[in-house]
Design a protein around this nucleic acid. Structure first.
Lengths: 185, 185, 185, 185
DNA sequence: TATGAATGAGGATTCATTCAT
DNA sequence: CATGAATGAATCCTCATTCAT
């Protein structure tokens, strides 16, 4: 039932304005009465939060295995594998992503998003720290921040804006940029 | 009168939730009656659009002169000057930017944003085209897209998230990335 | 318009349950849209408060002149005049009184009622203090409290319950009790 | 089970607004499912009615023995004993009383209260009838009504409002008033 | 008998918009 | 032009009640 509502919410969010995605409409889309929604969600925010969490989980379901596959590889290959996985994951969520990016009115609802981000930073930091020939210690934090921004935002824009750029070329560029940050100019 | 309303809208948008920034509240903040607002704006979306346009104009007011100052310089210096100007411009708009990023419910309202973007792409493309030792012709579009994304999004995140990174270091990294894209790996 | 709403509220409160006296129903009874109500009243409580205030004012409109008429009389006559006025006033409000007594869910809304009470206490206290042969100083407060309770509650019950008691007999009894309190046993 | 629900209802009514004392909340407080409640009570009103009945029974449990103890005494002592018992009884119920007085939305629910009242009138009437030197026959009804009102309402206000009056003084006054009614002015 | 998930009408309130003045 | 009172559909949410298990 929780699932039914969240899935309905995902559908409604993709169909209409965030503002028009009313609880009643979501309930109707779920084939459920408005009252029922409130047995599983305290308020509307919790529904949106659940949508974000589910999406995050699906993204993680694609990306985390890639992290494991990538672990034993050399930095360039590892970065490429992960970047590919990020793009794959985002492509599977393009519809919902488009609905949520720039539409979520409050930042507080982004716990799920922040959780992903924290995990990403940890992974990047550890990865960098273990890399031979990398930037000096004092720049690890900066490099981590830059890489996470590059590796999260550019793929999102690539998937949402569908610029006329071949995917391999985009991946190549992005990997190059990330390594450049990792090794310093 | 248009200005009064738009300025009030900017103030209200920074003060309260996007959802609570009602036309009545904006009218009140402007010291104008709700009815009068509708003599200059067809609906609420037009007000928000006007806010975005005004913000875009202010951003352009900082960035365009920098483009002129930067024109005669060598690519590295030119990029640096422009990146600095972009950050300066965004810092002046941090409050409103924070209010609008993640809050604008419809992407359709972003005409003003798209206008800026188109201008940026034109500038970058011309700049790249004229640069000696640059990427080959077939990659101009890709490089343009990547650079515009880099040069617009990273400064926004830098200004809004205020990561613990020195501004000069951030500028240096960003300039390096942009040049890397411009010259190819 | 305020009046229209408050009058409608009075009517609705007399017709239906306090719980069923919804803002929408009141608006409908006033021939006004639900939204209009909220231009004059912050919330439902304010409407009820206004109803109470209006009723209090009407009660005062009957009782205050009686206080003036009564002022020059001897204690027994004065008390009788006032008691008669209280009963007269309450009889004019029997319908609304019945609707509100025992139906107001929160005590906080009773500002209007408390205001009346405070005025009554002041009047009784002054009256007692100036009376020859009255109870001693240390008992003024007690006598005041008792008299106010007697003179407010018993008439209310008399008007609402309509016991088979002649009005003159009731007045006589009540005046007797009040004087008894005033002079001590 | 009935008891469990009614006790829970008493607790809930004292804790929250009458409007928020929902059947679901009462069921939860009773550790019972909402559905089960409806096997013993036709609707919410019946629950409240049961609460009132139980409270009435507890009041009677204190007052009725006092009536017996008081029976052989002279009128003044008898009245005092009963008044003391009434105050004692009400003080034990102050919490619930405060929750219900001014909050019960419909007078129709007050069967239990009316039952108490009928019993009180009977007792007072018999008592008066048997009293030497009492008011004349034609005034028995009036005296009964007045005494019941005095002896029920004033103690309630005394217990709920806690005016700064010593209990003995209050009892003395009230007994005096009642006897005054009983014997006529 | 007991459950508790499900119901859905209804509640208070908001707000983009209109229109008579 | 400007006003601002009035609108009324729509919003989020509650809760007395039901019914399949």
């Amino acid at each position: 039932m929780v699932d039914r509502v969240v899935e309905a919410a995902e559908r409604v969010l993709q169909d209409v304005d965030y503002q028009q995605a009313s609880t009643n409409r979501i309930a109707a889309a779920a084939g459920v009465s408005p009252g029922s929604v409130y047995q599983y969600f305290a308020d509307k925010d919790e529904i949106v939060e659940a949508v974000l969490t589910r999406m995050s989980d699906r993204l993680a379901g694609v990306i985390v295995p890639a992290l494991h596959r990538a672990a034993p590889l050399d930095p360039a290959s590892r970065t490429r594998v992960i970047v590919e996985a990020v793009i794959d994951a985002l492509e599977g969520e393009a519809g919902l992503l488009r609905a949520l990016i720039d539409r979520i009115p409050t930042i507080e609802q982004r716990q799920a998003v922040n959780a992903i981000r924290a995990r990403a930073e940890e992974t990047v930091y550890q990865s960098l720290a273990a890399m031979p020939g990398r930037v000096c210690d004092s720049e690890l934090d900066r490099a981590t921040w830059m890489i996470v921004e590059l590796a999260s935002y550019l793929p999102v824009r690539y998937v949402l804006d569908r610029p006329p750029i071949a995917r391999e070329a985009f991946v190549e560029d992005l990997v190059d940029l990330i390594l450049r940050i990792g090794y310093g100019p």
